[in-house]
Design a protein around this nucleic acid. Sequence first.
DNA 1: TGGGCTTATCATAGCGCTACGATTTAAGAA
DNA 2: TTCTTAAATCGTAGCGCTATGATAAGCCCA
Lengths: 343, 343
Amino acid sequence: MEATKRHRRKMQSVTMMDVAERAQVSPSTVSLYLRKPDAVSATASRAIAEAIDALRYVPNLMAGGLAAASSRAVSVIVPSVRNAFFAETVATMQAELGKERLQVMLGHSEYSEREEENLVKMALSWKPAAVVLTGLSHSATTRRLLKDGNVPVLELWELGREPIDMAVGFYHEQVGSTAATHLVQRGRKRLLFLGARLQEDRRATLRADGFLKTARETEGVSAEIVQHPAPANAAIGAMLLAEAIRKYPDIDAVACSNDHIALGVIFECQRIGVQIPERLSVIGFGDLSFSAACNPALTTIRPPGDLIGTEAARLILDRIHESGRAASSVIDTRFTLLQRQSS
Amino acid sequence: MEATKRHRRKMQSVTMMDVAERAQVSPSTVSLYLRKPDAVSATASRAIAEAIDALRYVPNLMAGGLAAASSRAVSVIVPSVRNAFFAETVATMQAELGKERLQVMLGHSEYSEREEENLVKMALSWKPAAVVLTGLSHSATTRRLLKDGNVPVLELWELGREPIDMAVGFYHEQVGSTAATHLVQRGRKRLLFLGARLQEDRRATLRADGFLKTARETEGVSAEIVQHPAPANAAIGAMLLAEAIRKYPDIDAVACSNDHIALGVIFECQRIGVQIPERLSVIGFGDLSFSAACNPALTTIRPPGDLIGTEAARLILDRIHESGRAASSVIDTRFTLLQRQSS
DNA sequence: TGGGCTTATCATAGCGCTACGATTTAAGAA
DNA sequence: TTCTTAAATCGTAGCGCTATGATAAGCCCA
């Protein structure tokens, strides 16, 4: 025994080398086949495919990522996937990115910039193919990390100020404005905005702002706001309506920061005998799964959560494929007003 | 020039080596500090921490994972995060695992075993610290991959047959049985189960089975089922109730496969003037955000989505820490009946 | 004072893959 | 047939880190 080996290591059962050997090609060719199948001849492709199958080869993406200095993971950070809006976008993105074998890494900021910053730091450790954030407000450190990180960055669900890199979403002030205009067109004069958790949900605040601004700029129309710091749900909605009627007995229309609130309003009106829409018009935001089935069916504004996801995925894939490009994109997905019975 | 270097490589700006140099220790010590801070002296720790901070060092987890032959990623595969139940569990798991710097990699099977299999293959390429699946039904290949993969495996949200490795959840037949027993105790005799997408949602089917079995075993009680293949939502719920009343005019209680269906039932009853609970008792499943605020408030069974997430995270962390253990665990989280006005 | 511990630190050999440039082969053109 | 050019394929040096075992430094008690 000549050499006294001191080191030993566990290892992966089947490596690319094994595949190469069986297919009678070099490891480089196997690697090429896996990354760009078109660049490999039909003969080689067949042999490699057979070998992969026979050996049950599973590529090691950590090794690949290390060698390539970038991984096939996309870090997606949302306030919470418990929120149906973001769940829709995350689900759509995962489906689209999964087709190209990109992995979604999920993080929840819980509406905290501090937490978002931690998640971004963690994400960067993975050399992700892209980092996806929600909204346009981030800590200075987050911004710096992302700009220095030399990584495609997407900001979803909000348009307005300058994005770090790319953005897909819509203008929330416009949502509020559209709601106000709609109610006015329906002949309403005493408008009210019902909001929950506005201190944390910047986008809901923008909707409220747009609503109040547009309403107050209209001749002969008044607009007030009633809010609560708790997260939006139907119970809060019911509570808010009760409070609103106490404070402003003559209101004839309410816009809600989302459909959960609106659902609570509908229930509360049933209980206290307020007729919708005769006595009170109601408009929500979200078009959640129950909105069309309410009694009365809820007029609402539908944000395109799925479209945001597909567009985001498309931008990421574009960036990956034509890696040279630096064009920064902003996509306005718009939103849709769905008029139903409640207004 | 002696050597003609042919190779060149881009690289990470700051590596562990840079940190080691600045802190006047070896790279090994830095690595140790990062993985087990307690094993490093206070002096060294301070110097390393300072260096990391000053250089803004970001560890490369791909390199770490490759060297360690396992990553700090946990692959979580759920039918869809659009479903509030799974969203709750995913969110909770991410929060718990994130504390220990584990990344959640998300996949959506869309209730397809074929798709789940693909996702598991992709997941395994990352050498995850654990693989988390939903339910106990998987393709044979999925099972084999996971067993050969030498990876901790968790199956959530369902108990019953033998798990691959560990399982956290509850018995869905028990849920159905509990619902039936409750309605009988409230004096109901003509029971009905309203279900959506039962062909795909195995767990909803188990609830239906448990419900029908228990009801039919009870003296003087009858039970029927009405279902629809579309995904559960309030509109389907309303439709199902209308159909149910047409088919079985004398029913006095309905159990719904989830609260979305129950919400539709409530709305439909309001429209057609059926009094809840006087004429008809209603019980749901899920305790969704609106359930307590309905009119009338909905009696429902609450599955502990958050508990499932925390318990799952705990099991994974336990496995990582005491890596020798092979004890396979099954945790029954139970569920809670919430009696409200609708029954 | 020194032997036997424990504790802290270190040097080094890969982990499995991809990028790079070089080399071989195939296909046309002359 | 030879030369040129394009298409396939190959050889190899790392990517940045961790596991391993070795060494050095403290510490206790005889």
